[in-house]
Amino acid sequence: MHTEQFSYHRAESVEHAVELLETSDDARILAGGQGLIPLMKKRELTPDALVDITQIDELRGIERTDDTIRIGGLSTHREIADSALLKETAPVIPRTVAHITGGQQVHNVATIGGNIARAHPGYDYEGALLSAGSQIVVSGPAGKQRVPVSEFVRGPCSTTLAETQLVTSIEIPVLSGDRRGGYAKKKEPASGNAIVGVATDLLFDDDQSTLVKSARIAVNGLQGCAVRLDATENKLEGKQLTPDRLEAAAGDASSSLDSSAVLDNKKASAEYRLCLLEPQVQKSIRQAVGERTLYSQT
C-alpha cells in the first residue's frame, strides 16, 4: 500500500454522499478509481477520506425520458459502448468510448462520471459530450443542478464541481431524425490519450438522406478544453453532403479556432496538432456518414 492513510466511507445514497463530502475536510469520490488511485499511489493526491459511491443504484442505468437520454454517472465505459439505446439516439458517445485506451479491464470499471469530473484534456468524453449537446447533472448541498458541459469544464483538470458536489448523471437531448456519430483520434502512444480527438454528431432525416440537418463537431486534446469547430459545422449544416463539401469543411477546421490556445507540449507541438486536425476531422465525419453514398454536386 503506497497511499497515505485515509478513511473510507460507503455512501448509501446521493444525499448520504453529499453529507459525507460535507463532513470531511478533503474527501474524494471513489467511483471507478481509474484517475484517482494512480494519483493516490504516487501521493500526488492525499485525501483524508474516500467516499465510495459505487453502491448507489440511482447513479446507474442508461434510460430515455421523453426528450432526454439520461446516463447514470456510474455507467461504465463498457455499458455505454454496449448500449443499444445510445447507439440509436446518441451514437457519438459509444463511438467515442471504443477509442478509450485501457482495454476491457479498464472499460469494465471506469465510469463516465469519473472521466468527465477529471476533465483531463487527453480524455475522450468531453468532445463527444460537447458535440451531443450534453448537460452534466451534479448534486450537492443545494440540490441538483444542470450544467452544460462547456461550462462544467473550466480548463485542464478543472471543473465547476464544488468539493461537496458529485456528478450524478449526464443528459443528452434526443433529436428526431437519423442521428449519426463518429470519433477519430490521434493517440499519444504511451498514455493512449488524445493529441487530437474529433467527435462528430450529425443529424439527417433518414438513413438515405445526405442533407445535413444539424452538425455538431468538437475536438478534445487540442486545447485545454474541448471546443466546437464552428467553421466546419457551418460548412455542413443545412447542406447536401458531398465529398467536396466534406473535404472543404474539414479543411476549414482550424479557421474558427484560437490557435494561440492550442496545446504545445511534449506530446505534440501546437503546429503538429493543427496539422493533424484536418485529417482527423475528415475521418470523424466519414465515420458518422457511414455507408450512405455521397454524390458530387453537378
Binding site: L39, P189, A190, S191, N265, K266, K267
Partner: peptide, 20 residues
C-alpha cells in the same frame, strides 16, 4: 511512469503495445 497524466508531460515512457 509508463503512463503519465501530468499536464504537459510526454504521456509516459512508451513501451510498444499490441496495437503498435
Amino acid at each position: 511512469p509508463l503512463r503519465d497524466e501530468t499536464l504537459g508531460s510526454n504521456g509516459g515512457y512508451t513501451v510498444p503495445k499490441a496495437e503498435h
